[in-house]
Amino acid sequence: MRPGIYRYTTMRLSQVFFRYRRRDDFVIQDADAQLAPGDVIELSGVNGAGKSTLLRLLAGLAAPTKGTITGRPDVVGFAPDRFPADQPFTVTAYLRHMSRVRRGARWEPWAERLNMEHLLAVPLGELSKGSAHKVGLVQALMAEPGLLIMDEPFAGLDADAREALPAIAAEVAARGAIVIASDHQGGLRALPGLRHWSLLDGHLKESTTTATLVQEKSATVAVTLPAADLPRFLARMRDEGYQAREIEESG
Rank of each mutant, 00 (worst) to 15 (best):
M1Q: 07
Y8S: 01
T10G: 07
M11T: 01
L13E: 04
Q15R: 15
F18T: 05
Y20I: 05
R22F: 13
R23Y: 12
F26L: 09
F26C: 09
Q34R: 15
A36D: 14
G38S: 05
D39L: 06
V40A: 04
I41R: 00
S44F: 00
G45Y: 00
G45D: 04
G45H: 00
G45Q: 03
G48N: 07
G48A: 11
G50D: 02
S52R: 00
L55W: 02
L55C: 04
L57S: 02
G60P: 01
A63F: 13
T65Q: 08
T68Q: 13
T68W: 08
I69L: 09
R72W: 07
P73F: 11
P73L: 09
A79Q: 01
A79L: 03
P80T: 00
D81N: 07
R82M: 11
A85W: 02
Q87K: 13
F89A: 06
A93E: 15
A93C: 09
H97F: 13
R100S: 11
R100K: 14
R100C: 08
V101I: 15
W107N: 06
E112I: 11
E112N: 11
N115G: 13
N115D: 15
E117C: 01
L120Y: 00
L120R: 09
V122F: 01
V122Q: 15
V122H: 12
V122R: 14
P123C: 06
L124C: 03
L124E: 01
E126N: 15
S128L: 06
K129R: 14
G130T: 07
S131F: 06
A132Q: 03
V135H: 08
V138W: 06
Q139D: 01
A140P: 11
P145R: 07
G146R: 08
L147A: 03
A155V: 08
D158E: 01
A159W: 12
A159T: 14
A161R: 04
E163C: 10
E163H: 13
A164I: 05
A169E: 03
E171S: 11
V172F: 04
A174H: 10
A177C: 05
I178T: 14
V179E: 01
H184K: 07
H184P: 01
H184D: 02
H184N: 03
Q185M: 10
G186V: 02
G186I: 03
A190G: 12
L194T: 04
L194A: 00
R195A: 05
H196W: 04
W197C: 01
D201W: 00
H203A: 12
E206N: 10
V214C: 05
E216A: 15
K217H: 11
A219Q: 14
A219W: 05
A222W: 11
D229C: 08
D229A: 14
L230E: 14
R236T: 13
M237W: 08
M237S: 08
D239F: 07
E240I: 06
G241W: 06
G241A: 05
Y242R: 14
Q243H: 12
A244F: 08
R245N: 11
E248A: 15
S250C: 08
G251H: 15
G251P: 05
